[in-house]
Design a protein around this nucleic acid. Sequence first.
DNA 1: CGAGGTCTTGAAGACGATCAACAAACGTGG
DNA 2: CCACGTTTGTTGATCGTCTTCAAGACCTCG
Lengths: 239, 239
Amino acid sequence: MSQHLLERLKQLERISAEEEAEILGLPASERHFSRGEDVVKQGSSPTFSCLLLDGFAARYKVLQDGQRQITALHVPGDFVDLHSFLLKRMDHAIIAVTDCRVAIVPHDKLREVTERLPHLTRVLWLTTLIDGAIHREWVVAIGRRTAAQHFAHLICELYLRLEAVGLIHERSFELPLTQAEIADTLGLSPVHTNRVVQELRRSQLLSWRSHILTVHDFDALTKLAEFDPSYLNLDGKPV
Amino acid sequence: MSQHLLERLKQLERISAEEEAEILGLPASERHFSRGEDVVKQGSSPTFSCLLLDGFAARYKVLQDGQRQITALHVPGDFVDLHSFLLKRMDHAIIAVTDCRVAIVPHDKLREVTERLPHLTRVLWLTTLIDGAIHREWVVAIGRRTAAQHFAHLICELYLRLEAVGLIHERSFELPLTQAEIADTLGLSPVHTNRVVQELRRSQLLSWRSHILTVHDFDALTKLAEFDPSYLNLDGKPV
DNA sequence: CGAGGTCTTGAAGACGATCAACAAACGTGG
DNA sequence: CCACGTTTGTTGATCGTCTTCAAGACCTCG
């Protein structure tokens, strides 16, 4: 099914030939979502999970007054919606930030896999635990870091996550979010987000034009953000 | 082992007699931690997971300048550290907020259970997904709610979580955190936290003295906080 | 080429941080 | 059981970060 997913899992744990075949053989219809469309709606109870093949997606909640907070960003290879496999009802929504290609995996099939392959089950479980680790890091960033540190932290995280699926080229990657969307992930206003972006541009740490973000000094960026990548579990020991 | 845990799991999914026996029979040595002690240290690689039997615990990270952010609070019945079963290295620490009684469950035993009981495995997995849902709600609260709303939201959440394990009596529960610790969970300064607490006291929504917090008007509190409990999955359908 | 969305800039104001001092509560030992 | 020291909570004043409002410039795409 998804080569990206397989690579990611292999970075986490040794995957047997049987498991590999199982992953690649997961029956999955493919669906497309266009920018701005909800991939999963709040309050729905999907009977399938979504694996992001191509594009960016975001989990978000909106408050009564219309304010929005993005709680997670998903990149290609993310099993965006493994949650709904066990959590019956979606307490939030997922939006396609860009046009997205998504593999749809029925919950029945997933259940069947978990009945038969306990080790693979643990690896899938692990990927959801890493999502949790990312959430914790976001809480720290939003709670205790300055706006600039927070933005820098987000860029460092995206950089490594995209690198893990081969989407970094010459220190650059596609960051298709608008500044307003970045603001909603950082918990800031769009205006202040813009000022922070310009601050980092001025200090030569990165540039960002026409949706391409280039990191000029990754070390300095991690230092500014106090970024410690260990929570991403990307050290890739197992092979 | 833990009656609390069993009750919690039964609220989520139907638990068979075999599974119930398995849970109650989990071999677990008991340990005590005193207030302020680390239950799990950052950077460690435990060979067991911790189930909180009694007391409050908190996951936290500290930044270079000494600022602290608490990323989760744990109450009795929480499988505090199921994470370490699959995540090898702790990227954060867990502190005993009060004196704690903890059951220690070896990872080997957990692995063995996951090999044999796929349904129980999914239920345990589910509990970690609910932790993730709580994290997302915290991101929203810290990112987009006012300080008073955020505090109110936290109290609503704790109220329901403690109610689920029978620790609410006459609209009251023990909240043994200091205001400085609350500040570290809300991402605020202690001074401002104090002002927010007083604001809610003045508006008659709650009182909080000598570590006992009483909610006088839960509905008004949820309304202020825009609290929607569905993310906690406590509706208790299965039995 | 025009139109809508996105980015940028300025000015004013709010929310929360910080600093500092003091009061109250707690716990420990005499 | 009281005395004392330490931790926790409370209050005031000042400061800074970020928000809000508003207007204009810049893109991008049909």
